[in-house]
């Protein structure tokens, strides 16, 4: 029985680890400035935790086999209540490992969340509602117009869905889109809002996720470094259409972005 345990536990450990090492299913290629740092921290954590995981499982299987009861001829078990020095050693080692690992990631978290977007970042307001995303650009005046919940009507789409108040002068030049178009290599400041329940704005390629909470306007930022289309999905249970609530971030060159914005402006 001990041998079977050893074989099964070791096999599970090795097969389980193989798919991690081989990266058979892995994060998508990073397309934002933060991705490299986050991915590096993933690797560090995997190496350290993977080491602990493999060591503990191998030891468990090994002990199960080695110290099995072999009948009458077998060694009696050792009468020992433990070892305080060993206890202290592994407590301290674990503290250093766990807390150190966390502190090592502080600078990335700080740049992602402690620091506000720099002045001159491209502002995009992201609004979640059951079950769609809308993106709003302030237009030439740099100001978002007022929105009124009473005016919301999702069937109108665009400005109607957001409840944009057309009497507010600041709202005249607001551009509303169902696709998030952003320029490459510019910092994007997103202002996350929700109309009804909590949603979460998740763009795996950007290594970006943040809940959108009704009653809050959450300011966050990221910097795309690759052009292309990247999918958005809702990552917080928001109702029966949760699985369908997805969208696209279209990262284009800066001239293309300006062109697109001007064209949308002209349509109004």
């Amino acid at each position: 029985m001990g041998l079977v345990l050893l074989v099964v536990i070791w096999l599970i450990t090795l097969i389980g680890s193989y798919f991690i090492v081989a990266k058979t299913w892995w994060l998508p290629v990073g397309a934002s400035a933060a991705a490299a740092g986050i991915d590096h921290h993933f690797t560090v954590t995997y190496i350290l935790m993977g080491g602990v995981f493999i060591a503990a499982q191998l030891a468990l299987g090994w002990f199960a086999w080695k110290y099995r009861d072999r009948g009458t001829g077998s060694q009696p078990a050792q009468y020992s209540h433990g070892n305080t020095t060993l206890e202290a050693v592994w407590t301290i080692l674990t503290i250093i490992l766990f807390i150190g690992l966390n502190l090592a990631s502080k600078s990335i978290w700080a740049s992602e969340r402690f620091d506000a977007a720099k002045p001159g970042a491209v502002q995009v307001e992201v609004t979640g509602m059951q079950f769609a995303w809308y993106f709003r650009y302030a237009g030439p005046d740099g100001k978002f117009g007022a929105t009124k919940p009473e005016l919301e009507d999702a069937s109108l789409g665009g400005a109607g869905a957001l409840g944009l108040d057309s009497t507010d002068p600041a709202s005249k030049d607001d551009v509303i889109s169902g696709v998030m178009v952003v320029p490459v290599n510019r910092e994007i400041e997103v202002i996350l809002r929700s109309h009804d329940v909590i949603h979460s704005f998740f763009v795996p390629a950007m290594r970006f996720k943040q809940d959108t909470v009704p009653g809050l306007a959450i300011h966050m930022h990221f910097t795309p470094i690759q052009t292309g289309d990247f999918e958005i999905a809702c990552a917080e249970l928001c109702g029966l259409g949760h699985y369908k609530m997805h969208g696209i971030v279209k990262v284009v060159s800066e001239p293309e972005f300006n062109q697109w914005l001007a064209a949308r402006e002209a349509e109004k």
């Binding site: 345990l5 468990l60 002990f63 110290y67 099995r68």
Partner: peptide, 8 residues
Amino acid sequence: LWRGRIRF
């Protein structure tokens, strides 16, 4: 488990 006499 170490240096025990394990009954399965």
